[in-house]
Structures are given as structure tokens and as C-alpha cells.
Design a protein around this nucleic acid. Structure first.
Length: 552
RNA sequence: UGGGGUGUCGCCAAGCGGCAAGGCACCGGGUUUUGAUCCCGGCAUUCGCAGGUUCGAAUCCUGCCACCCCAGCCA
């Protein structure tokens, strides 16, 4: 049951195609446009495409759908590859580029013109919109629709040669201006763009549109199942039209699934960019961003993200997935694999008055409660230790399971102590607690039978080290920040980041490597920052808190 | 009657004519040197609504309703 491969409508189609002999091998592809960073929605698409190929002994290509130089760049090409690899997937062969098929696309465009199935149209953008009609009214034929083939050929060649300016002419398919499907109303195949392309330089003055490129890219690569999201469903008839009217080498089929919409987050590239541009976050890889690089810096793991994608399934229905599911997947993975350590976020000094000033005991502590293979580390125990200010009260009701004046508590992996007195400053704030240890309580309960009320984390004041801890929380405090006419900028959680400069960490944490994750006991999961962490200046990001069912 | 989709527990999601899986969340209880984990138990007489077919329907038919996508020379 645990390892049952995700069964969904796509897997059913694939199984049927394999069984019927329609295909002998499954070939999918992940086709991002290099115009931004990958986000959680792309992660799902990656899991679906690579996952299906993997589960069926097939292959999956990574192909950049780089048909619009205006918005694309090499920076994105690199970050996307890095993200896919980080998620744990390996694409088949070399990375592919739609741009490497440009010559073939052009020849096919000429072919369509020769067949009388495409024509050069001189309407400008505004006129074209008028001629296109509306959702409820049919469009009208372009006055250039019946241009002679020879003239079309000549004009197309000159478009390619750069003789015309941007927007002056386009190449369109001759299909049906009265189609109820807007995509079939003589769609544009080529537009003029006098701009260098990141892969082809200044070789081309015209660039194919998504519609005229995607299916052919799939056909060239021998893609069997071209999987995309629901909004492309209306494009499928056009996708098929090109494949039916062109001498393509193979016949891919397009299938669509529902986009992922996690609650409390946005996945619109435009809006994410706005967050970056307006400095609401520190960048595309800010730990609060739903980008793959942001989640990575936050401490989410590839395994957790993949588990989450398995959990939510792949269907054709649209919905909002509770981020609690993502958080569950993160906690599940980290709980099983992250070494434990202790850190105190809000230090309150506890002086163990019975403990010698010059004494240091090294106490062995397991790195994980159930996984012995994770080993153990040494915790220096000294007369002065820090505990979290939240873990001490002068008085409290019986539900409070921490240190209370006159009562006992267990210092995790160390002694049981009993609080004797508090030291306050002029403002009446508690600045220090005096306590004493209960003898022989390492790994044992007190001999007098008076058990501690609870267990709290601590760090030696003299042997511990200072650290910066960045506490991250949800970026939005609204379940659907950009639904309907919500202004997502108005739903930003003002407390999505709180920086703790004077946290105290156990010395073993100085050995943490960037991107290494830990559970700081009783606090949550934290990761050493990918860029800012060092043993000289430790910086940890809060990945996610522990599940908290504490009432009252 | 513009076209294309989707509607099963608060959320995700199985099911495809034989009498509602599972996960998340939530609520109880147990274990526990993490108020974590783990363990046990609870959680849709009902499948958008209304009719119909059938011995029998979430699954078939008909009609409604709701929501999503499409009028970029974006993808």
C-alpha cells in the first residue's frame, strides 16, 4: 500500500496505450519557458512528467520552450536545470531547445503556405483583434486571407530576411474564422521580433508562436504523451491540426491535468515577480517564496516535495490544496531523517548553584530518538545554562509542563533540576533563575520519586554559541490571497519573517553544513542557510514548526 | 444553447451498475527524557440539484445549477 505507484487517469491511459501496442515506450517532457523561476506548480508538473516516465520504464526530456526571446534569458535556463536536478530527476540525453528546431519549423511553415493552409496577414494587432470576433460572435476573414501562394511565399521569405518591422506582418494558418474555438480562428504561426535570441543570436527575425511550435517539438522528439495543464485544453484541436497537416515524424497526443493551487500562496509568475520587484521578499529564492529555490532555501527537501505531489494526486479537477498537506509531507520527511539538536531562541540564564563553576560534563545524546544509525553527539553541561524564557514561570497551573519556581523539570538529555529563586531587574523582569540539580538523574528518575513535570531544551551558557535564527511563517494570511478581486498585496503577513539575533545553540551545530537540516527539539525544523551560514556566524532558517496540539 | 472543462466528508482523492478506499485537517484515548513522533479509536445512510431507467445507481439517461478556462503578434 505504501509503495503503490500513484494511479491516475494519465497512468490509465498510458497502461492502455502500452497494452494495446499503440506505443512501445513512454516518452514525456517537461517544457518550461525560460522566463522565470520554477515554483511549486512546476514541481508538480515535473513530478507528473518525470514520474510517469519513470514508473513506466520510459524517458522524459527537459526542453526549453524558448520561442519568445523577449522574455527569456540564460539565467533562467540555468536555474531551471538546477531545480530539476535538485528535485532528483534526470532528463533523457541532452537538454533540448525549441530554438534548435527553428529551421524545421520554418520549412513546415513554407509547406503549409504551399498547401494553401497558411498566409501572410498584414493586419496590425488591433485590426486582428477586431477581425477575430468575440466569444459569442464569429470573426471575419482577413482581407489578406486569399493571397496567392507565390505572394505568401515571397512575403514569408522577406519576413524571415528581416525586411519588415515588428508587428507589420504575421503568418497565420487558414482554418476557420467562425470557429467557436478562438484558437482555430486563423491562429498566428510566426511573428516578427527583431531581437537577439539567447540561443540563436540574430539568426532569426521571426519567431514561431507556442501553438505552431509545441506539437511539432513533441513530434520531433518522439514524445508519446504530451502532458500539460487544463488551460491548454482549448489548444488541443489546434495542436492536432498542425500534426495532421504537417509531415511530422511521430504523432504525440496531448493530455491535460488540473493545476496545483496551494492555499495561502500564489503561483502567478507575474505576481511572484511583483513580490521580488517591490522587495516584499529578498529575492526569487527567499525562503517564503513558493519557488523551488525558495523552498530549497527554506529547508524543504526534494523527497518531501515529491511526496506532497503524490499525496495530492493528478486529476482533471481544479481545486485548492490545503498547504497543511505540504507541511505534513515536510514534517514527515524531516521527522524521519533530521538529526535532533538543541537551540534556545529566547535565552534565560539558569544558574545551577550546586554545580561547580569549573566543572564541565560531556553528556552523550542520541541524534535521533529512533534512528541509532544517526549516532550521537556530546553535550557540554555546565553550571550556567540557557533555557527558553517561555519555559519558565514563577507559577503556573498543572497543564504547564515546564519549569516552575519550586518545581522540577528535566533538562533534555541531562539532569532534572529544581528552581529555587528568580533574579529580576529594576523593571521587574526575570533575568535569571537559580536552581539546583537533582543528583543521579542522568538517564534516571529522581530517587525520591518526585518526577519532573516535563522536559525542556537547554544550552550551556559557556560552551554554547550565538546564532542568528530566521523565523519564517506563511507569506500570506489569507487562504486565497489572489482569488477573485482580492488584492494579494493587502494580504501579506507582516510577521512572515522575524529575525532572532541572539539565539544560543549547542556547540555541535557549529559543524553544520549549509543546507543541512535539523530538528531543534521542541521548536521545529531548521536548516543552515544555503548562503549565509558558516561556523563563524551560524545562520539557521526555520523550515516548519513542530505540530502543536497543545491546548490552553 | 459561443466553445471547452469540473462537480464524492472542511481540503485532496479512490470508485466506472451491486450497495461510499485512503490521505490531510479535526476530535477522543494510550505510550513517551521533544506538549513531537508512534499507537488505538471517531469522523459522508451519502456522492452539485431534480427527475427517470433498473431488483439495485456516486456509477446509465434527461433536465437544471454552480464553479473554472478561452477574444496575447505570452506560454
Amino acid at each position: 500500500m505504501e509503495n503503490t505507484p500513484a494511479s491516475n487517469f494519465l497512468q490509465t491511459i498510458i497502461s492502455d496505450d502500452l497494452a494495446s501496442g499503440k506505443v512501445t515506450e513512454i516518452v514525456t517532457r517537461f517544457p518550461p519557458e525560460p522566463n522565470g523561476y520554477l515554483h511549486i506548480g512546476h514541481a508538480k508538473s515535473i513530478c507528473v512528467n518525470f514520474g510517469l516516465a519513470e514508473a513506466n520504464g520510459g524517458r522524459c526530456n527537459l526542453r526549453f520552450d524558448d520561442t519568445n526571446p523577449e522574455k527569456e534569458s540564460q539565467e533562467f535556463i540555468e536555474s531551471i536545470q538546477q531545480d530539476v536536478r535538485w528535485l532528483g530527476f534526470t532528463w533523457d540525453g541532452e537538454v533540448r531547445f525549441a530554438s534548435s528546431y527553428f529551421q524545421q519549423f520554418y520549412e513546415w511553415a513554407v509547406y503549409l503556405v504551399e498547401q494553401g493552409k497558411a498566409y501572410v496577414c498584414d493586419l496590425n494587432a488591433e485590426q486582428a483583434r477586431e477581425y477575430r470576433g468575440t466569444l459569442k460572435e464569429p470573426g471575419r476573414n482577413s482581407p489578406y486571407r486569399d493571397r496567392p501562394v507565390a505572394e505568401n511565399l515571397d512575403l514569408l521569405a522577406r519576413m524571415k530576411a528581416g525586411e519588415f518591422g515588428e508587428g507589420e506582418r504575421v503568418l497565420r494558418a487558414r482554418i476557420d474564422m467562425a470557429s467557436p474555438n478562438m484558437n482555430m480562428r486563423d491562429p498566428i504561426l510566426y511573428r516578427i521580433r527583431k531581437m537577439p535570441h539567447h540561443q540563436t543570436g540574430t539568426e532569426w527575425a521571426i519567431y514561431p508562436t507556442y501553438d505552431f511550435a509545441h506539437g511539432q517539438e513533441d513530434a520531433i522528439e518522439g514524445i508519446t504523451h504530451s502532458i500539460c495543464t487544463l488551460e491548454f485544453e482549448d489548444h488541443r484541436p489546434l495542436y492536432d491540426w498542425f500534426l495532421d497537416n504537417l509531415p511530422v515524424p511521430s504523432r504525440p497526443r496531448q493530455y491535460e491535468f488540473g493545476r496545483l493551487n496551494p492555499s495561502y500562496t500564489i503561483t502567478s509568475k507575474r505576481k511572484l515577480k511583483q513580490l521580488v520587484d517591490e522587495a516584499v521578499v529578498a529575492g526569487w529564492d527567499d525562503p517564503r517564496m513558493p519557488t523551488v529555490s525558495g523552498m530549497r532555501r527554506r529547508g524543504y527537501t526534494p523527497a518531501a516535495i515529491r511526496k506532497f505531489c503524490d499525496m495530492i494526486g493528478t486529476t482533471r479537477s481544479d481545486g485548492v490544496v490545503d498547504v497543511a498537506m505540504l507541511e505534513f509531507a515536510i514534517r514527515e520527511d524531516l521527522n524521519a531523517n533530521a538529526p535532533r539538536a538543541m537551540a534556545v531562541l529566547k535565552p534565560l540564564k539558569v544558574v545551577l548553584t550546586d554545580y561547580p563553576e569549573d566543572k564541565t560534563e560531556m553528556l552523550a545524546a542520541p541524534n535521533h530518538p529512533t534512528r541509532e544509525d544517526l549516532g550521537q553527539r556530546q553535550l557540554p553541561f555546565t553550571r550556567e545554562v540557557y533555557i527558553d524564557a517561555e519555559d519558565f514561570r514563577e507559577e503556573a497551573n498543572k497543564k504547564y509542563k515546564r519549569l516552575v519556581l519550586g518545581k522540577r523539570v528535566r533538562l533534555r538529555n541531562a539532569y532534572v533540576i529544581e528552581a529555587d529563586a528568580v533574579v529580576k531587574n529594576d523593571a521587574g523582569e526575570i533575568v535569571e533563575v537559580h536552581a539546583h540539580t537533582i543528583p543521579n538523574t542522568i538517564g534516571e528518575n529522581p530517587e525520591d520519586g518526585v518526577k519532573p513535570k516535563g522536559v525542556i531544551q537547554w544550552v550551556s551558557a559557556s560552551a554554547g554559541k550565538r546564532a542568528e535564527i530566521r523565523l519564517y511563517d506563511r507569506l500570506f494570511n489569507h487562504e486565497a490571497p489572489d482569488r477573485g478581486d482580492n488584492d494579494f498585496m493587502a494580504h501579506i503577513n507582516p510577521e512572515s519573517l522575524q529575525i532572532v539575533n541572539n539565539a544560543w545553540i549547542e556547540p555541535s551545530l557549529l559543524e553544520a553544513l549549509p543546507e543541512q537540516g535539523f530538528q531543534f527539539e521542541r521548536e521545529g525544523y531548521f536548516v543552515a542557510d544555503r548562503y549565509d551560514h558558516s561556523s563563524e556566524m551560524p545562520v539557521f532558517n526555520k523550515t516548519i514548526g513542530l505540530r502543536d496540539t497543545w491546548n490552553d
